[in-house]
């Protein structure tokens, strides 16, 4: 890897190539976190205990906060919140299809396993961004890492408990078989720009390296609990990274922008008007 260690500079100092690569990295960070949070909210009043209602709600709030940080960084290039979210089309988004799937009805194992697969990938990705040559990414990464620790721990604790119960074990195994190909899309490319992201030092690991680390880590943990990990699986298509999504995302997106549309808005409102 020919990685340049010099700082890329402020948003307006980037060359076109640098800016394209930075944007490519930022969009998947923002979209993954945002849609993961959108789905989490489903469980907020349906989790099996009040404690887990709180945990899921808290995870969702964390991810929304992180999405806001990443979209802020994107807005430094001139995008508006309206065009990014409320006036967007479903195929504008590049999140992995893992985060857009609805949960199987009543299946807490699905929710926990999905969180686990996602959050381990998130930890690995953030670690690869720690030394990013783009300051706006580097500084946010450090802040976010401090708030992500608990997510994997929470999921692992639940998986250990569910592995001890026969019915729960079957549900988790079924979720693993179902979700694994979708989780692999987290490591799919958006195109040739992937090489630039690494060459420019925006991220210091390739998608393949991150996927290998993720597979190693998740397989070790899940196998130890007695689950069979379908490591031979191919990534699901469409991947989401290619701007193509499942029908589930189209439905969720419709819901997401419906208030804005129904109220005939042209701009996102703030709590207080600027003076």
């Amino acid at each position: 890897m020919a990685t340049s260690r010099s700082d890329l500079g402020a948003p307006d100092e980037l060359s076109e190539r640098e800016r394209d690569a930075v944007e490519a990295q930022l969009f998947r960070l923002a979209d993954d976190e945002y849609i993961q949070a959108e789905r989490y909210t489903f469980w907020q009043v349906r989790a099996p205990t009040l404690e887990s209602d709180l945990a899921v709600a808290n995870n969702a709030q964390d991810e929304l906060g992180h999405a806001r940080l990443w979209y802020d960084a994107i807005q430094q290039f001139g995008y508006s919140e309206e065009s990014l979210l409320w006036e967007s089309e479903p195929d504008d988004f590049q999140h992995s299809t893992l985060v857009e799937l609805p949960f199987s009805e009543g299946d807490w194992g699905d929710a926990i396993l999905r969180g686990y697969l996602y959050d381990v990938a998130e930890e690995i990705r953030l670690a690869a961004l720690e030394e990013s040559t783009y300051r706006e990414i580097r500084e946010r990464t450090s802040r976010i890492q401090g708030e992500e620790d608990y997510h994997v721990e929470h999921a692992e604790n639940w998986l250990r408990r569910m592995a001890d119960d026969e019915e729960a074990r079957q549900r988790v195994q079924a979720a693993l078989d179902r979700l694994y190909p979708y989780a692999l899309t987290l490591f799919e490319p958006v195109g040739d720009i992937e090489e630039d992201i690494v060459d420019l030092g925006i991220r210091d690991a390739t998608l393949e390296e991150m996927r290998d680390e993720w597979q190693e880590r998740t397989t070790a943990f899940l196998t130890d609990l007695g689950f069979e990990v379908p490591t031979d699986a191919e990534p699901a298509t469409p991947t989401g990274r290619d701007n193509e999504h499942t029908q589930h995302w189209h439905d969720l997106h419709e819901e997401m922008v419906s208030s804005y549309r129904n109220l005939g808005r042209h701009e996102a409102t703030t709590l207080m008007d600027d003076e």
Partner: peptide, 16 residues
């Protein structure tokens, strides 16, 4: 997030 609205055509999200 607060920002000035701008011409959406000028800031299309990047595509794969």
């Amino acid at each position: 997030m607060s920002s000035e609205p701008n011409d959406p055509d000028e800031f299309d999200r990047p595509r794969a």
